[in-house]
Amino acid sequence: MIANNIRFLRKQENLSQEKFAERFGVSRQSVAKWESGESVPDVLKFREIAEYYTLSIDVLVSVPLDGLDANENTADGKYIFGMTEVTQDGQVKIPEYARKVFDIHAGDRLIVMGDTSRGGIALAKISLGDMKTE
């Protein structure tokens, strides 16, 4: 999972292994070994990577950020798509794999729902035909 997450984060920014390595002060070979699963970053480097991407170390190590591992067990229709960040103006980037699964494209309309007793917010894709006016 660590290898996939590091590769996913690097590719999300369209960075080469060399540019990713420069960002975190390691060699390109180190990044290649992390991505192949041959080795893992040390704890301080884990923290630096996690902080840069506003993730916890736990998420970086155990949550499939690319959604691929989550896709293996989706008979019940439940997914973990990874983490996202709310911008200063309240915008949220929906992970690419979630957009693919739910066929969400630029310009689509989403309804935002929440349940304070469960501490959650949900999004649902709607079409204008789904909205009834009275």
Rank of each mutant, 00 (worst) to 15 (best):
V112D: 00
I94A: 04
S127Y: 12
E38D: 13
G90T: 02
I121A: 10
S16D: 02
V59C: 12
L15D: 03
A106L: 12
G82C: 01
L15F: 08
S127M: 03
L128I: 02
E22H: 15
D58A: 13
K33C: 03
I2S: 08
I126Q: 00
Q88K: 15
G90F: 01
W34E: 06
Q88N: 11
L123V: 07
S30W: 05
R99V: 01
E18L: 14
V92E: 06
A21V: 05
E85H: 05
I111C: 06
A70C: 13
I94N: 04
R109Q: 11
Q17E: 05
Y97A: 07
D89Y: 05
Q29R: 11
V26R: 09
E13R: 12
R7I: 00
R118G: 15
L55A: 09
S56E: 02
F46S: 04
G67A: 08
N73H: 13
K11Q: 15
D130H: 09
V63F: 10
V86W: 02
L15M: 08
E72Y: 00
L60P: 07
A3G: 05
I111M: 14
V40D: 14
R7P: 09
D76L: 14
K100L: 11
I6Y: 02
L60M: 07
L44V: 08
P41S: 11
E18K: 15
P64S: 14
L55Y: 04
K125R: 14
V26D: 04
A106P: 14
E35P: 10
E22Q: 13
M113R: 06
S117L: 12
K93V: 13
D58M: 10
F46Q: 10
I94W: 06
E72N: 12
D108I: 07
G114H: 08
D115F: 09
R118V: 08
V40W: 01
K100P: 03
M83C: 04
V59M: 13
K33Q: 09
T54K: 13
Q12K: 12
E13K: 10
K45N: 07
L60F: 07
G37A: 14
S62E: 07
L15R: 08
F20Q: 12
A32E: 01
P41M: 04
V101M: 10
Q91P: 00
G107Q: 14
L110K: 10
D103N: 11
S30H: 04
I57S: 02
R118I: 07
G67S: 08
Q88M: 05
M131H: 00
F8M: 07
S30A: 06
D58K: 15
L9S: 06
G119Y: 03
A21T: 04
L44Q: 06
P64F: 03
T74F: 11
V31I: 09
P95F: 03
T54I: 05
G82K: 02
K45M: 06
S36V: 00
M1N: 09
D69S: 08
K100G: 04
N71G: 13
G77L: 00
V92P: 14
F20R: 15
W34P: 11
D58C: 08
S39V: 01
T133N: 11
E85V: 08
I6E: 01
E13V: 01
A75W: 02
K132G: 00
K78Y: 13
K78I: 10
N14S: 14
S39R: 15
S56L: 00
V101Q: 10
V59P: 09
A124T: 07
L15C: 06
M1W: 08
